[in-house]
Design a protein around this nucleic acid. Structure first.
Lengths: 192, 192
DNA sequence: AATGATTTTTTAAATGACCATTCAAGTTTC
DNA sequence: GAAACTTGAATGGTCATTTAAAAAATCATT
């Protein structure tokens, strides 16, 4: 019990520190020592817990993917129509807990580096497929077959693009405004 | 004359090699030696021509930005209406010469790394502002004031998002299809 | 509660690679 | 012969990871 807990606490601390440090310095440049300093620990202890730098990065991405999935599940619980569920997907992506500069920044770093790491690229692929199938399921109820793929690509690209820009932002983000804008895009795409 | 020419030839060769090598290995990981090998030259000669690794990266990005700008100018020449000019911006982004996996891949690497390099981030900012003002100018002729900003963000995010996905693609891209899809998105956004 | 054995956690220092950049000495071009 | 170009070999530095040893926590036994 207590054995488990200490490890979990450290994992969480180190992952938080990773998010901050990668945001500050960039994925390709950040060092174990910097992450360790951010967490108030030593570089060696990171290896003790995560095995390697890549292991830490994978764990960090898993953590973020988990948060995203959870936000989505919560939104789905109260959505009753296809359109509300589309809103829910957007709301999850732009939720207060996720749509922050450091996290968008991290996400972009992962996107950029996924192709060069089998472990990251696997996570990335899985997540993307999940979002895609959610979109398709709802769009099928709203649009004729011929328009579905265009709409899906428009929505998914929009989401990605907004995150991409958010990652570059020098000022804090406004998640509520992002959600409102996303709703308008959903409306646009589904009322064509 | 020939003095100029040799330098230009080398620059072009080395930039091409950089695009290939960065695509293959990733911006943060690629080494001067790898780029040199790709170009059939030595690492030292890259420093002779570009001063440093960062100089090479900046030159490579300038090269790509130039291509993009040129494609856009060409498109504008034959566009006569605001909507056609919006098409032209999209067509430039998804032109045959630019919308390829290695180039989208490079672009994403630059996006991800721009925040950590003043030289790159400057280029990035300038380009983004240019695209933004093009969009705004045309949208003002097509939409009421209140909808312009939403539309602009939708279009620009869409473009970014499509490139992002293209960078991950394992198969060659279909620029013509991308242009057609982009036109549909323009139509969608401007007929709301 | 106290004691000592056992396991878990921590880190300073060592290790072993790797790499951008420089330099000096060549080669080619004009 | 001078200027432009090229590169192999040094240089100096950085960094992930390992190691070994210490410190802390946990547990078993009395």
């Amino acid at each position: 019990m207590s054995r488990k807990r200490i490890r979990d606490i450290r994992n969480e601390e180190l992952i938080e520190a990773t998010i901050i440090a990668v945001h500050k310095r960039g994925y390709g440049v950040v060092t174990m020592a910097e992450i360790a300093r951010e967490a108030g620990a030593s570089a060696a202890s990171i290896n003790y817990y995560f095995g390697s730098k890549e292991g830490l990065m994978e764990a960090t991405m898993r953590h973020l993917l988990g948060k995203l999935r959870q936000a989505m599940v919560e939104g789905y619980a109260t959505a009753n129509t296809p359109r509300e569920r589309l809103y829910a997907v957007m709301d999850a992506n732009f939720s207060d807990g996720l749509y922050t500069v450091p996290q968008c920044s991290i996400w972009m770093q992962f996107w950029a580096n996924a192709p060069y790491s089998p472990r990251l690229s696997r996570l990335h692929r899985i997540n993307r497929a999940r979002v895609r199938s959610h979109f398709l399921a709802e769009l099928r109820a709203l649009l004729p077959e011929t328009q579905i793929e265009t709409a899906r690509q428009a929505l998914q690209s929009y989401m990605d693009g907004v995150w991409l820009q958010a990652a570059q932002s020098e000022t804090p983000l406004d998640p509520a405004a992002a959600r409102a804008a996303a709703h308008r895009v959903v409306d646009l795409v589904t009322t064509a």
